[in-house]
Design a protein around this nucleic acid. Structure first.
Lengths: 356, 356
DNA sequence: ATCTAGATTGTTATCGATATCATCTTGGCC
DNA sequence: GGCCAAGATGATATCGATAACAATCTAGAT
């Protein structure tokens, strides 16, 4: 796999790395290092004339500011840390994008990590992040190891938990009730006449949002007097498209008269729908299927998929906004809770016969 | 949207942030700061006894190592920077995951940025990254502004360009020829009897990999004597699922007898297939469709989608491995090129009638 | 008993920027 | 003309760890 035929030796000779410092730029221009430092900042008082000369020198010499030195003396790292369960999941990468966008032009940079839905990995990552002395940290969910909580509380920086409404928030929260959202979906579909509800989710509580959705489903189906829901657990969360396909087969084998199946996410819903079609079943005529999260796939899929539209990007933006507030306000204000919106999006995959 | 009813003031009182330093831990244990510093490292020579006592103190006090201070004096930031066009695209987030995984237990941390497929944004990000003094940097593609190139060359750190084979590599390369990969797909489909080829891609050269795939398509169709390909450009890259659907409508309106349509990515291919089904056309019987990238969706979709399987995760792992090599070897070796594998995956979306 | 290599620990200087305070200009105002 | 405020610039200490070297100690060899 490696092509060694042509050992091109490019510019990267050792020692080529001229470590240029601010002091050298200063000498070149004939000012003090402090003035060069000031020239790099918007607010500082440097004459336009001097700043211009300095910036020309910076260009000419190819100097690049060293923030690691600066953050030590200013005691501001310029980092915001964020942990998401997975970056391959577009819901969370939308949130990450929201954070990055909100941080633009604030001089803050995002340090991103993914926990793989594991609290232990989250704990390790939190420690790794705190070693960089971030000015704030954004987490996904409210379920953390006790050591993680202790580290966060001791860090003395604003913390935002997202995507859920934790029972005991550490500090700020930007999220919504996954339980309520799923309940709303159940009620909406019930009001359309569906009676026999199935549910597809993962096998463990690793994915706390998944568990909350499941309990929202179960609780609401029972409240509506529709008996216990038909639940299939399949695979370690997050469950994949393929597992969604396998799960619906199990579910329909066990309860062939199921009218509508709710899935923990659009990904599994998509897998379920495709598997049905592959087996010659019609969706929604033979079985209706809904997802959660409103991934891009759901509006494009044929049939398009009924789902809950979550404001993933907004969660990121607002979480970052909360942090910025807290950093401005001195962080003395204690935590607050920002509820983010969600809504049911009814699409073809749950259309009732003749309802067109 | 904000719930201010219950202003919970949690532990985050101002001044709560005890800035604990290594010196204080040292005093607590009765050793020097240097010994504490050593206790945090694997290789350093500290007696087990002392290390244990130090670590207990660290736990008891809740001390967290400060890497920003350490990296200044050791002149090693512990960062690797990586820039991808988008984190919402699972191909690239797979690459990011590969990098992160390869970096595990190396003491190096990933600084991730996304360029939005724009060279100017890449330039800004490169500068922002270099300010953190990363020990190496991984880029996507070989197309950079000249200032970006200059900064990179001057930085004196190993650089890896990925996902393409740049004509003038800066340093290391881990990638494959998008042109060749698409050519292979064309030849494979031609050998199955397809003659009238269409292509769907974006409107501009922003996405250089997209352009390369396009030229691979065009070149090969002509080489095979199948006339000029029928090309539809639709939308600013990266084109979405929805745009794929719109594009195939245009394409089939203009050239109704097209037998097979290749798309710049699986996402647009999926959109195209779904739009066809929505309009009552059969895939592949009425028109065959193929994509590029082997996204999860493509094996699940009904019909499953013919595509090029790219080793996205492996690109990340190998790019990181190249960097680690270079960091070990002192970086004196100059650049090398690592070719990553790809393969045609034939699926239902291009099955010839009766070929089952 | 003496010596030495290796292990363990300490001391001091330093990484490269910025905070802070001091100094020097400059222009406006009475 | 003299005084003062605001603006521009400089000097120095410092952020919190680690590199480099020095000092001390231990165990085994002679």
């Amino acid at each position: 796999m490696k092509n060694e035929d042509e050992p091109r030796d490019k510019r990267l000779k050792p020692g080529d790395a001229q470590k240029l410092t601010m002091a050298e730029v200063a000498k070149y221009v004939g000012v003090s290092a402090m003035t060069v430092s000031r020239a790099f900042r918007q607010d500082a008082s440097v004459s336009e004339e001097t700043r211009k000369r300095i910036m020309e020198a910076v260009d000419a010499l190819g100097y690049v500011l060293d923030l690691s030195a600066g953050s030590l003396s200013s005691r501001r790292s310029g980092f915001i840390a964020a942990l998401v369960p997975s970056i391959n999941n577009s819901n969370f990468s939308d949130t990450a994008r929201g954070i990055t966008d909100a941080l633009e032009n604030t001089g803050l940079q995002l340090l991103l990590g993914y926990t793989d839905y594991a609290a232990e990995k989250e704990e390790k990552l939190i420690e790794a992040m705190l070693r960089r002395r971030p000015e704030g940290i954004i987490l996904t969910g409210g379920s953390h190891t006790s050591r993680a909580r202790r580290m966060l509380e001791k860090a003395g920086i604003p913390v935002v938990e997202t995507w859920e409404l934790p029972e005991e928030p550490i500090n700020h929260v930007v999220g919504f009730s996954n339980t309520e959202a799923m309940a709303l979906l159940v009620r909406t579909l019930a009001s359309q006449g569906y009676r026999k509800f199935g549910y597809i989710g993962g096998t463990t509580a690793r994915d706390t949002r998944g568990s909350q959705r499941r309990s929202g489903f179960q609780k609401t189906v029972e409240e509506l007097g529709l008996g216990p829901g038909r639940m299939i657990s399949f695979g370690v969360p997050p469950i994949t498209m393929e597992q969604g396909g396998q799960a619906i087969v199990s579910l329909l084998e066990r309860w062939p008269d199921t009218e509508v199946v709710l899935c923990v996410s659009d990904l599994s819903a998509f897998g379920a729908i495709m598997e049905c079609k592959r087996r010659g079943m019609r969706v929604p005529e033979d079985v209706a299927i809904a997802g959660f999260g409103d991934y891009e796939i759901s509006s494009i899929c044929h049939p398009s998929i009924t789902t809950i539209d979550v404001d993933c990007y907004g969660i990121g933006r607002q979480a970052a906004a909360r942090l910025l507030d807290a950093l401005q306000g001195g962080g003395a204000a204690g935590g607050d809770i920002t509820l983010t919106s969600y809504k049911v999006v009814l699409r073809e995959s749950t259309e009732r016969a003749g309802s067109r």
